[in-house]
């Protein structure tokens, strides 16, 4: 399992980020992203995942993040570009990472080694 710092991803453009994540996950790595992805990057990651799915091979990803905090206060609007702050995110191969429970403030996952 790799813990990916904010800095590691911030140097990449959105396409590079999505490609990096897919490549790692296809190597059976589970990634924890300190900063998460923007909603647009999440959508692109889903799209790219779909193009990589193969019967008897890669069956997709499991991804869990917390809902973005969209504060409506003036302070929030001033400091986080439109009030959106991306959050801690875990991404892994669908056959190894299972979400057991997800709540507003707690994500419980089960990590298994490859069968």
């Amino acid at each position: 399992m790799d813990l990916i710092s904010e800095e590691r991803l911030s140097g990449m453009n959105p396409v590079e980020k999505v490609r990096f994540i897919i490549d790692e996950v296809k190597k059976d790595k589970v990634l924890v992203l300190e900063k998460g992805l923007t909603p647009d990057e999440e959508a692109n990651l889903i799209e790219m995942t779909m193009t990589k799915i193969q019967p008897d091979g890669f069956s997709g990803i499991e991804m869990e993040s917390y809902p973005a905090q969209s504060g409506n206060s003036i302070i929030n609007k001033l400091f986080n570009k439109g009030g959106h702050r991306t959050r801690l995110t875990i991404i892994g191969p669908a056959n190894q990472l299972k979400t057991l429970k997800k709540d507003r403030d707690l994500i419980t996952t089960l990590l298994s080694s490859k069968e």
Binding site: A43, M63, S65, G82, H84
Partner: peptide, 19 residues
């Protein structure tokens, strides 16, 4: 079903980001 699924979070995030 449990509403906190990733696809719900992603769809809502995309709409909020696009206002």
């Amino acid at each position: 079903q449990d509403p906190f699924t990733q696809v719900n979070v992603t769809v809502i995030g995309n709409m909020e980001a696009r206002k």
